[in-house]
């Protein structure tokens, strides 16, 4: 099933904002996030015939996004940075944290650095979990992994974050 222009535009209009957010969460900087965004849409439209229309499009799209990201950081020739590449990006990040969160934006900056330093598989799971509050089962389905694996990764990731955040606080 080849996707027509009008349908493609409609999907782009509906899902671009969320996809941008996911790309930012995964990459941590604008340049890589935009690359990932473009590649994800390209792959989604190229493989549209594999999309099962009875299932939510966003999860299928996000699964492509995550897999593209994971493949891209696998090889040395895609040397990428996870944290901000300019001060402006860091300021944008700090401004994106709501004032009512109870923690200072500097705390969130530290959290961001800790998440960036997590192993790739842990980082992806923790981002998917808190990006849209997906359940363990939904994440497992998106990543084509057993539920036990996701639980284990989530547990390890949170444990690492807590430990490192404690070191930062004290």
């Amino acid at each position: 099933m080849k996707i027509d222009r009008e349908t493609a535009d409609r999907y782009v209009a509906v899902h671009s904002e969320e996809l941008t957010r996911l790309c930012f969460c995964l990459c941590g900087n604008v340049a890589d996030a935009e690359d990932l965004f473009q590649e994800t849409w390209c792959k989604a439209f190229k493989n549209f015939d594999k999309y099962d229309v009875s299932k939510p499009f966003d999860k299928w799209l996000f699964a492509i996004c995550v897999n593209t990201y994971k493949n891209s950081v696998k090889h040395w020739y895609n040397s990428r940075r996870f944290c901000f590449s300019t001060d402006e990006e860091q300021t944008l990040f700090l401004n994106s944290i709501p004032d009512s969160s109870g923690y200072s934006s500097v705390d969130y900056l530290e959290l961001h650095k800790i998440i960036c330093s997590l192993p790739k598989n842990h980082r992806v799971v923790i981002i998917l979990k808190y990006f849209k509050d997906y359940t363990i089962e939904e994440i497992a389905q998106m990543l084509s992994l057993p539920v036990g694996t996701i639980k284990s990764r989530l547990y390890s990731a949170k444990k690492t974050i807590r430990r490192r955040f404690s070191q930062y606080e004290f």
């Binding site: 904002e17 957010r21 969160s101 969130y108 961001h112 998440i115 923790i126 808190y130």
Partner: peptide, 10 residues
């Protein structure tokens, strides 16, 4: 914090 971090707008 993780919830706020994950739900922030791009």
């Amino acid at each position: 914090m993780l919830k706020v971090y994950g739900s922030r707008k791009a």
